[in-house]
Design a protein around this nucleic acid. Structure first.
Lengths: 136, 136
DNA sequence: TTGCATGCAAACCATTTGCAAACTT
DNA sequence: AAGTTTGCAAATGGTTTGCATGCAA
């Protein structure tokens, strides 16, 4: 389970386990919405928990540095965060704005062809999804 | 030549050919540095040309909309722009900060496997380049 | 007890906007 | 002449920072 792995990874890297960090990890567990920092902040606040903006940013930074989550740049306005660190592509439908995760074995060959050691990646494809094409 | 193609494409899309647009297109012609809007602004100003910040942004937007250049998000701080719209991957060396363009036929299979119509993409791989590995 | 982490508000900085003047067609 | 485009400066909005207080270890 993501939460347990994340908490363990934080511990291993010498980070303290605090309430805000637990909340954010819980929030991201199984989350496929690629939320922004603001969305995370708002949603956590809605559930009677007190958290500050700076802490959301700090914690997300920490989780990214510890390789527990990925920062994705599909939205040029603001960073989004993804707890799924497995090889996948983000397909953004520009009509309905949905981000579809595509787990594909076609990603690996690209990573293997890089002229150096790979530490992370972000594959963003923009277009129009089948569901929107059918509607038009 | 990129400049001629870009100007023609602007005309075809009903955009007027103005000095600032020419300067920016010339600046980007053959440019492999993936510059930011600020870098473009500064460099154009350095060569005795008067241009405003808003115009740089407006023009880059226009060029992106007309599919003449790509906006790339390799830098979470600010957008970068690439006149090379052919299928390639951006490999960012986190040590020397260089962005290496990798033209690869491995990109196409990914685009073809998307659940919809593809209009654009941005493939970013982060790591350490061979040259930096050798130095350490 | 010892630092690391949090929270607040102010600062920062890339990008956008409104509008009058200038220019392309 | 008509309608875009430019340029300026101010506004916006996501993200970061400094520092005092709080908390995990």
């Amino acid at each position: 389970m993501f939460k347990d792995i994340a908490i363990a990874a934080l511990r291993e890297n010498g980070y303290k386990i605090t309430k805000p960090r637990e909340w954010i990890v819980e929030y991201l567990d199984g989350n496929k919405n690629h939320p922004t920092a603001l969305e995370i902040f708002d949603d956590i606040r809605k559930s009677d928990k007190s958290i500050s903006f700076a802490t959301v940013y700090n914690t997300l930074d920490t989780l990214v540095k510890a390789n527990i989550i990925n920062e994705i740049t599909i939205d040029s306005q603001s960073s989004r965060y993804d707890p799924d660190t497995s090889n996948h592509v983000h397909f953004l439908c520009e009509k309905c704005k949905k981000v579809i995760d595509i787990h594909s074995d076609k990603v690996k060959p690209i990573l293997e062809s890089m002229p150096g050691k790979v530490s992370g990646f972000d594959i963003i494809v923009r277009g129009e999804c089948d569901s929107c094409i059918k509607k038009s």
